[in-house]
């Protein structure tokens, strides 16, 4: 006799844990500082979360498929540097205006896509561990951006900067562009992960790549696509980031990769692959940025302890994951 009733949906700790954590932070923030729930602060937090968030969505797919990418932070810095160089040198020919900005955006997207493809090709064709490959490319991009900037800072031409700035600072109905783009990426990411063959294949590969291979899944191609997609999203994040400061240096994007990975894990995606959820990643990103925001708004705890608190949260998240797994 087969039981045809569905399993009761149980709210496991790995589902409600991150949500509860986020709610707790919001309540704590509101109690500690009256400005916390103000419109300006909310928009500020969200806009700052957007860069890491957009990257973390791509990272969710990579990790779900059993991979890892340590190079995204330096990749972002390199792309930012490249974008600035290209825009500056095209400025005399194109003049300040939409064409030069579009050129910059195209460079960022193409550069991100290529960088991601390169990582993915080395990992899938040569069969080298993702950790090693991306550790290598992390060093390469970081060094390249330092070299491009000659050890200093690459700055966007001043006239161009003021023209491009609205991409970070303005938006629709008071919601700035980075937030809108982030939201769009999240919605698409959630749909792709949850409801498409690609998302299913990512989870299958991360769960057991032998089974995926024996099930006629195009394992190498799916893996490659996760890295390429992540590279593309790094390009998107850079497009949003450059107008904010208008410069790139060796210090741009430092530790972004770890923040993105941390957000993915806090959100309940399993580090060794096989299961991922994009909405969880969003919560992870928000938790990380709310912590630093609250520390900045209050003088309760020194902001210098930001890293310590984030670290503790990451470990806690993994402990919760483990317990919910043992409980099934």
């Amino acid at each position: 006799m087969t039981d045809t009733t569905k399993a009761p949906i149980r709210l496991s700790m790995s589902v409600i844990g991150p949500v509860l954590g986020l709610l707790a932070l919001i309540v704590a923030g509101a109690l500690l500082n009256p400005n916390f729930l103000g419109w300006d602060n909310i928009v500020n937090v969200l806009a700052r979360s957007a860069f890491i968030g957009i990257i973390a969505v791509g990272m969710t797919f990579v990790i779900t498929a059993g991979g890892l990418d340590l190079s995204v932070g330096s990749m972002a810095a390199f792309i930012a540097g490249l974008m600035i160089l290209v825009m500056n040198s095209a400025l005399p020919a194109l003049g300040v205006g939409i064409p030069v900005v579009l050129l910059g955006m195209a460079v960022a997207l193409a550069g991100g896509l290529l960088a991601g493809l390169l990582n993915g090709l080395i990992i899938t064709r040569l069969g080298i561990e993702a950790f090693i490959v991306t550790l290598g490319s992390m060093g390469i991009y970081r060094s390249l951006v330092t070299w491009l900037a000659d050890g200093g800072t690459l700055s966007l031409d001043f006239s161009l900067r003021s023209f491009y700035q609205p991409v970070y600072y303005s938006g629709i109905l008071g919601i700035s562009w980075p937030i809108l783009v982030f939201a769009l990426v999240v919605v698409l990411g959630e749909i792709v992960m949850r409801a498409t063959a690609f998302g299913r294949h990512c989870a299958a590969i991360g769960s057991n790549d032998q089974v995926a291979k024996y099930s006629s899944v195009r394992v190498a191609r799916v893996r490659l696509m996760t890295y390429a997609g992540l590279g593309l999203l790094v390009g998107v994040a850079t497009i949003m980031y450059v107008p904010r400061l208008g410069s790139a240096s060796a210090a741009t994007g430092v530790l972004w990769e770890l923040e993105a990975i941390a957000a993915v894990i806090i959100g309940g995606t399993v580090l060794k692959g096989g299961f991922g959820r994009v909405w969880g990643t969003v919560i992870g990103v928000l938790i990380l940025s709310l912590i630093s925001n609250i520390l900045n708004l209050t003088d309760f705890v020194s902001p210098y302890l930001n890293g310590a608190i984030q670290g503790a949260i990451i470990i806690l998240a993994v402990v919760l994951q483990r317990e919910s797994k043992a409980g099934t």
Binding site: A203, A204, N208, Q210, V211, Y214, G274
Partner: peptide, 24 residues
């Protein structure tokens, strides 16, 4: 166990993995 089925997934995801295109 190691090549045929995803032990950590449900029956439905396992059943359709090989012929997912049919449901796409």
């Amino acid at each position: 166990k190691t090549r045929g089925l995803l032990l950590q997934k449900g029956m439905r995801e396992n059943l359709t993995l090989q012929a997912l295109a049919k449901f796409d």
